[in-house]
Amino acid sequence: MNSQNTASKPELVLEAGRAERQYWQDLWRYRELLYFLAWRDILVRYKQTFIGIAWALIRPFLTMVVFTIVFGKLAKLPSEGVPYPILVFAAMLPWQFFANSLSECSNSLIGNANLISKVYFPRLIVPISAVFVSFVDFMISGMILLGLMAWYDFVPNWRILTLPLFMSIAFAASIGVGLWLAALNVEYRDFRFIVPFIVQFGLYVSPVGFSSNIVPEQWRFLYSLNPMVGVIDGFRWAILGGESKIYWMGFAISLGIVILLLLSGIWYFRKTERTFADII
C-alpha cells in the first residue's frame, strides 16, 4: 500500500542543467516555499509583539507629520485641493512599501544562507517573498490613510478603482531594484551600508512631502527618471482625484524605467544566482 502511494506521487529529479531548462516551471512548483518564507517572516515580525505592528504605523505617521509641518505649514506648498496630510500620506504608502522592500530584499539571501547552501530551489523566491512581507506593512499603514480620510471627511472618486494598477507598478519597481541589491549584497557585503543611504536619499528626491507639479516644467523630464515619481503620482491621482493630475509623459518615462529595472534585475540575478551557494 505504501509503495503504491509513493509511486503515485510526482517526483522531482535533480539533474545537471535542470535549473537552466526548467527554472520558471520550478519557480511555480516551489510557490508554497514562497508562501512559507513570507509567512515565517511575518510571524517573526508581528507574533507576540506590539512594537512590530505599532512601528509600521508610527514611522509613516511621524514622517507625514514632519512633512506636513515643513512643506504644508512653513513652506505653504500647494496641496492639490486636499488636506495636506492626505496629500503626503498618499505618497508615503508607496514610498514606504518601496523602501521596506529594498531593505528586506538586500538582506534576504544572507538571512537565508543555510537554506540556500543546502537545498535546491529557484533563488528568486527569497527576495520576492521579502517584497510580500513589505506588502503587509503597506496594508497596515493603509489604516492611517483611511483614518485621515474619515477625519477630514474626504471621499475618493472613481479613480480609486485604478489603484491596483499603480500598486502592480510599485511591486515591479520593488522587485526590480530589490533583485539588484540582493545579488550585489551577496558578492559585495559593503552594499548593506549603501542601501540605507539609497533609501534616505530617495525619500528627499521623490515627491513624498510635496506635489511633483511644483517641479519646473524644464526639469520634469529629468525628474521623471526617478521611477518612484510615476508610482507616487499614480497613487495620488487614484486616491486624491479632483485637482490631482499626472504628467503623462513623465509617467511613461518612469514606467519605462521600472520595466527596465525589473528585466535587468531578473537578468543580473539569474546571471549570478549559480554562485550564491558558494559565496554565502
Score class of each variant (00 low, 15 high):
3 S>G: 06
6 T>V: 13
7 A>V: 06
7 A>N: 14
8 S>K: 13
12 L>F: 15
13 V>Q: 04
22 Q>C: 08
26 D>S: 04
30 Y>K: 05
30 Y>E: 09
37 L>S: 08
40 R>W: 13
43 L>C: 13
53 I>A: 10
54 A>H: 07
60 P>E: 13
63 T>F: 14
67 F>Y: 15
68 T>Y: 06
70 V>Q: 04
75 A>I: 08
75 A>S: 06
77 L>D: 05
79 S>R: 04
81 G>A: 05
87 L>N: 07
94 P>A: 02
98 F>R: 02
103 S>E: 12
110 I>A: 15
111 G>W: 11
112 N>C: 05
113 A>D: 07
115 L>C: 03
116 I>A: 10
117 S>T: 14
126 V>T: 09
129 S>G: 00
133 V>F: 01
136 V>P: 00
136 V>N: 05
141 S>W: 07
142 G>T: 12
148 L>Y: 08
151 W>A: 13
151 W>E: 09
152 Y>D: 10
158 W>Q: 13
163 L>W: 08
171 F>R: 03
176 G>A: 03
177 V>W: 02
177 V>L: 12
180 W>G: 00
184 L>I: 01
184 L>D: 00
190 D>W: 05
190 D>V: 06
197 F>C: 10
203 L>Y: 12
203 L>N: 07
203 L>S: 08
208 V>E: 04
211 S>H: 06
212 S>E: 12
214 I>G: 12
216 P>R: 04
216 P>G: 04
217 E>N: 08
223 Y>S: 06
225 L>N: 10
225 L>S: 10
229 V>L: 12
233 D>F: 02
234 G>A: 11
241 G>D: 07
242 G>A: 15
255 L>R: 05
258 V>G: 01
263 L>E: 08
264 S>Q: 02
266 I>N: 00
